[in-house]
Design a protein around this nucleic acid. Structure first.
Length: 415
RNA sequence: CGGGCUGUAGUGUAAUGGUAGCAUAAACGCUUUGGGAGCGUUUGGCCCGAGUUCGAAUCUCGGCAGCCCGACCA
């Protein structure tokens, strides 16, 4: 991508009406545009990041048998009345509107819809287990949107639903999802702590949240540094300073961001909506379900909260909008020509490059922009480097700069 | 939804009852080029409505919007 052609530009100042760090940096760097409280548009750079997060999720969900679907945003009222959630629980947060005189909702979550769909296709134990997921914009009437991308009224969510013939089979899958989620989040540069949470009306069993320690978080968790125990303050039977019930180490209290959660749904929805299957013994039984959420947009915000410095964002490699930020530092024809060659070579090698080919920008401004945008590798081509047939290579998260021969650049990035 | 704070060029800010100013971005020209460059010229603004007043960005009331705290939140 030629930076001179990029739709967005950076700004020196963050807008006054944003206090949250993730929103400030993402807006300054041109990743998102704020439309209203809790509602953001994704601009080219932001969409690249969002898609990378979504693609990591897709890949990992498919590895655990998830099949991607896309469900309707509109939610019929009668379905939600059957599960008694139209005006209770999450239903209170549902945007509702009239459609030809009847009321419909905009999906804040999809248990109702997915359960009704599965009724049409799953009828025997031979059909189980199955799991489906979707990545979609969710709408929620949050009373108070806040913290930039962390709590929006319109946000991106991946919701996975699994269907099982028994509680045991469900539990096996639940553990598989836990592993998978840790992998997804790890690839997104986040270290999450599996935390016991409250059912919040979804279920009576203990669900789990994936919490990332960060001052900007709105949750508080107690956790053990040994990594074997964590409880959300909402449901905690422990407090800071207590001994870990498992390994006796001291428990710590921290603010954290909930980037994912997983719920045992049991047979709550299948019973309410009549989703039964015929078991080996010929008996009709309700399908056991689980649901599992991850918020790509929230992950993006959390990644910025965790990975930044005073100069800007430091994207974790896998979700960076580009791998390399190539900077043509000066405007003389030789530098332009050489930069262009390097750009073409890198592209041919399959590397994603943002090429700062802009004229009329001082070196200082180009460096400052590169730091703000936060692409993992920076390559500088200048009069100085060309004298040595080289370019400068610097990682966004390191201070050291090394000279690399232009010829060796391709090999460097291949490995 | 309760409480608090705030709305001034695209963005960030100043003017506290009396000529809307500064920075930055944008446009043009010349110079400049290793950490947000210089000079000159130009464009562009008081959230909306009502009231008080000779006169309102400024005071009052209402609305709308944003942020923060709380409540709420798979």
């Amino acid at each position: 991508m030629l930076q001179s052609q990029l739709f967005t530009e950076t700004t020196k100042e963050a807008p006054r009406d944003e206090k949250s760090l993730n929103a400030k940096l993402l807006i300054r760097a041109g990743f998102v545009h704020k439309e209203m409280a809790g509602v953001y548009s994704y601009l080219p750079l932001g969409l690249l990041v969002l898609r990378k997060i979504q693609d990591i999720i897709r890949e990992e969900m498919e590895k655990i048998g998830g099949q991607e679907i896309l469900m309707s945003v509109f939610q019929p009222k009668d379905l939600w009345l059957k599960t008694d959630r139209w005006s209770k629980g999450i239903g209170k947060d549902m945007f509702k509107c009239k459609l030809n005189g009847s009321e419909v909702g905009l999906g804040p979550t999809h248990e109702e819809i997915v359960t009704r769909i599965l009724k049409s296709y799953l009828s025997s134990y031979r059909d189980l287990p199955k799991s489906v997921f979707q990545i979609q914009t969710k709408f929620r009437k949050e009373l108070r949107a806040k913290s930039g991308l962390l709590r929006g009224r319109e946000f991106d969510m991946k919701d996975l639903y699994s269907f099982h013939s028994s509680e045991e089979d469900f539990e096996k899958y639940y553990k598989i999802v836990i592993k998978s989620y840790h992998k997804v989040l790890g690839r997104c540069g986040l270290r999450a702590i599996l935390t016991e949470a409250s059912g919040k009306g979804f279920t009576s069993s203990t669900p789990h949240e994936f919490q990332v320690i960060a001052p900007a978080g709105e949750d508080t968790i107690f956790y053990c540094l040994g990594g074997d125990f964590s409880q959300n303050k909402e449901v905690a039977k422990v407090k800071a300073g207590d001994k870990c019930p498992i390994c006796q180490k001291t428990l710590i209290e921290e603010k954290s961001i909930e980037v994912g959660n997983i719920f045992p749904l049991g047979i709550k929805y299948s019973e309410a909506l009549g989703a039964y299957f015929t078991d080996k013994d010929g008996k009709k039984k309700p399908i056991t379900m689980g649901c599992y959420g991850l918020g790509p947009s929230r992950i993006m915000g959390a990644a910025v909260e965790i990975h930044h410095d005073s100069k800007g964002i430091i994207w974790p490699g896998e979700i960076a909008p580009f791998q390399v930020h190539l900077i043509q530092l000066q405007e003389n024809p030789e530098i332009k020509k050489k930069s262009r060659e390097i750009y073409d070579t890198l592209l041919k090698t399959g590397i994603e490059v943002l090429y700062d080919d802009r004229d009329g920008k001082s070196p200082g401004e180009k460096f400052a922009d590169a730091d703000l945008i936060g692409i993992p590798w920076r390559i500088v081509v200048s009069e100085r480097t060309l004298e040595k047939d080289s370019v400068e290579l610097k990682r966004r998260d390191k201070e050291e700069i090394k000279l690399v021969k232009t010829k060796e650049l391709q090999t460097f990035f291949k490995s």
